[in-house]
Amino acid sequence: MTVTAANPETETMDLYDHEWKHPTVVAGVPWKNPVGTASGTFQYAAVRWFYDVSQLGAVTTKGVSPVPWEGNPGVRTAEGPACNINAVGLQNPGVDHYLVDDLPKLKKIGANVVSNVAGHSDDDYAEVVAKLADSPADMLEINVSCPNVSAGGMSVGTDPVALSRLITRLRKMTDKPMIVKLTPNVTDITVPARAAVEAGADALSLINTIVGMRINTRTGKPIIDHVTGGVSGPAVLPIGLARVWQVRSALPDIPIIGIGGVDSGEKALEYLYAGANAVEVGAAALFDPVAPLRVACELDDLLDDRPELAAKLAEGKTWR
């Protein structure tokens, strides 16, 4: 396969023989570097052709539910200015398939695996976490943006009471480090952030996608059959940075994984200065399969000139 990445810098960097200089620690788990994949944009079967994913700080796999989910029908994506809009609806083959397929394959090659958990009810989440509790997954990430019947059909991430109840329940089921992935579609993200941490979350990842849509001006109809979807990509960078800054200001000690618009080491660095311990690369991998590895290499080199920041990260601390 001919792979020519969208970013010309890729061609001048040796991505495939990089010696990592600046590791980090997230909620007690060592990461080779502060860069992971964002859930929903990573399928091992597709990505393994492009690079050795065990070289990343972490691999966050697609959300798994207790049973296979088919996701949304029809057109699931539209493009916005400098962004992608997706309405996959968390299609996945279910946790049982994950436990015998993606997870063992990723652990076999030595990847640091964050298993993302999805559910449409508190019981859904509990069922998945119960099965992952004894698995070789390194960390769990709870996706609380899915519409949830236990929260009246709203996403648990927008309802701090429902969120607290859910995380309290899951906390009792596993000692694995548990990350809660927050949605930005709230008035004040520090409210669910605090609720998650007080209920036992070991770390927070943010932001999930922002609700958006496009319209086909030839038909006058929404491009995506589900009408709205989640916006991700370069366009959301300033919004993600502000949310990380806000949560870091409210919660000085909780590990934070910054997500949103990271497509270069420079942008990853912005998240670290905003108070994140690490970042995840999402939409950029749709435009450039090797983006997560490239970002990790770029960031590793940028940290050479920032020994103070690098030293803090190495100890699991952050800039702010």
């Binding site: 929903g40 944009t41 990573f42 399928q43 079967a45 597709a46 990505v47 052709w49 492009f50 697609k62 296979p68 088919e70 996701g71 029908p73 057109v75 699931r76 994506t77 539209a78 992608n84 997706n86 996959v88 299609q91 491009i223 991998a285 749709l286 435009f287 399969p289």
Partner: peptide, 26 residues
């Protein structure tokens, strides 16, 4: 189908088949 990544990672282009919803690209 309106596609995303083209190489099978994003699951944005699917079609309904007798084996479930499969990726058009991959």
């Amino acid at each position: 189908q309106r596609m995303g990544c083209g190489y099978g990672t994003c699951v944005l282009c699917t079609t309904d088949t007798v084996n479930g919803r499969l990726k058009v690209c991959a």
